[in-house]
């Protein structure tokens, strides 16, 4: 038996390892190589040109701004929604199902749906016009209205991607035995204290997963931004797309891709460290 089992596990994971190597690891190495090469030599030329680009600092600023606004809002919203959903007696599954519908919609489709609402001839303007609040078609998504464009993107992102945080947090909440909260209640903790002193600390592992997932995806934000604002609101992933497709410069596109990856990895490392649960504190 021991002799036979020694190679079987490796054989069993070999297909997925091969799959990952061919379709994930190879392109990753190629991308990194591409970003660091000029001709056949190692060079930082791509990064120099990326950093020197007119849109670069704006894209960095926008991406971080969007992440810093959207992710905390999503966590707060999801926490509130999850707390309410877990308190429902009847119709809980239906409510949860409705709340998670946006998850089934591709981000480009979500962006286009919000475009239909918010563009010059969109539903929002029609409604405002009918109420006599505006004179005629008003632009909300143009370069001249950066704040309303930003607000629109935040709104669309909240609508589109809060549900994934919600699902993770509900799963986490269900793992916490209700006796902890009951004990706290008996010993004098008010609802808010129970939430901050008992529920939140015990929910930390779930919060960590949700934050990692959402933050990494937020740094990659692209389709919703592209649908609503085009290049009026440059973001990192959008710049990578422009360099790849419009400018046909794969090296600079690769540099953007590597930069996004580095930021995501750094954010993940921060979450893993800051929201770590020590083994002795696990239930």
């Amino acid at each position: 038996m021991p002799a036979r089992t020694s190679w079987i596990p490796y054989a069993l994971i070999a297909p997925s390892v091969a799959f990952l190597a061919a379709l994930f690891l190879m392109p990753l190495v190629q991308t990194i190589w591409l970003s660091f090469s000029a001709g056949d030599a190692l060079s930082l030329e791509n990064y120099r040109r990326m950093a020197g680009d007119l849109n670069f600092s704006l894209a960095v600023k926008n991406t971080f701004l969007l992440t810093l606004v959207v992710v905390p809002l999503q966590v707060v919203l999801a926490l509130a929604m999850a707390t309410m959903v877990t308190k429902l007696d009847k119709g809980r599954d239906l409510v949860l199902w409705v709340l998670t519908i946006p998850l089934g919609i591709s981000d480009l489709a979500a962006g286009l749906a919000w475009l239909a609402l918010l563009q010059n001839t969109g539903y929002l303007n029609s409604a405002l016009y009918a109420l006599g609040l505006i004179e005629g078609p008003t632009g909300w998504l143009s370069q001249e209205t950066p704040w309303s464009l930003f607000f629109a993107i935040v709104l669309a992102e909240l609508w589109r991607a809060t549900a994934i945080v919600l699902v993770i947090l509900i799963a986490g909440l269900q793992l916490i035995p209700k006796e902890f909260s009951e004990a706290a209640e008996i010993f004098g903790a008010k609802p808010w204290t129970r939430f901050t002193r008992i529920t939140l600390p015990l929910l930390k592992p779930s919060l960590q997963s949700a934050l990692i997932l959402r933050t990494v995806l937020a740094f990659e934000v692209f389709a919703v931004v592209y649908a609503l604002g085009g290049r009026n609101f440059p973001v990192l992933a959008g710049e990578a797309y422009v360099w790849q497709n419009d400018n046909q410069n794969y090296g600079i596109a690769a540099a953007y891709a590597v930069l996004i990856m580095a930021i995501s990895l750094a954010a993940t490392a921060v979450y893993l460290r800051v929201l770590r649960t020590r083994p002795e504190q696990l239930p």
């Binding site: 035995p177 006796e179 902890f180 009951e182 008996i186 600390p201 015990l202 504190q281």
Partner: peptide
């Protein structure tokens, strides 16, 4: 009255000692 206003303490079957 809510539990905290009843002036009592309780020991639970599974202890409910806060793990964190």
């Amino acid at each position: 009255l809510v539990p905290r206003k009843r002036g009592l303490a309780m020991v639970f079957q599974n202890y409910a000692v806060f793990p964190h």
